[in-house]
Design a protein around this nucleic acid. Structure first.
Length: 154
DNA sequence: GCCAACGTTGGC
DNA sequence: GCCAACGTTGGC
């Protein structure tokens, strides 16, 4: 089983929003980056564990644990001209953008802020923390996963 | 609101 | 295929 970190802006969709959604599950739509799409399409498996990270937040950081709840399927927002993520160059015959479903599993007893992640030497190599990283979906190693769980009080 | 970093686009 | 221009991300 693989582990991942997925960024979301809590003003748009927070961990609590996923928790409160029907079946605690939401479609992870709106990804418009090929590398992130390829992670979902080619590598994610149902049951993979996911940290939900709040970006553009005060403070930014990891709020909870989720799991991948579906394999990848076409993101419907790419076909909707009224949606901000509409992509006129995509087609239903050959969809460009994919999404997975994500199910909330557990809120971390302690929110783990970005500055705490940066301060932990065990996480020095973490993809999220590398200079200039903007990727909204990144792999998490088993050691990183364990270290962050401990920081979050699990 | 600023701006560094990065991905994408499109002219050539 | 190069690369300048542009748009976006996301911490601060």
């Amino acid at each position: 089983m693989a582990s991942w970190l997925m960024k979301t802006e809590p003003d748009v969709c927070s961990f609590d929003d996923i928790w409160k959604a029907p079946k605690r599950t939401t479609g992870w739509d709106g990804v418009r980056n090929y590398q992130a799409r390829n992670f979902m399409r080619d590598q994610m498996q149902v049951g993979d564990e996911v940290f939900i990270y709040h970006s553009n937040a005060e403070p930014p950081g990891i709020a909870g644990i989720a799991q991948v709840a579906s394999s990848a399927y076409p993101d419907p927002t790419q076909f909707d001209p009224t949606d901000p993520h509409y992509d006129p160059d995509s087609s239903r015959e050959s969809p460009r953008w994919m999404q997975v479903d994500v199910k909330a599993v557990k809120k971390l007893p302690r929110f783990v802020p970005l500055d705490a992640l940066r301060a932990n030497p065990k996480l020095a190599g973490m993809r999220l923390l590398q200079r200039g990283n903007r990727l909204s979906i990144t792999p998490v190693t088993a050691a990183e996963w364990r270290a962050i769980l401990a920081m979050g009080g699990v």
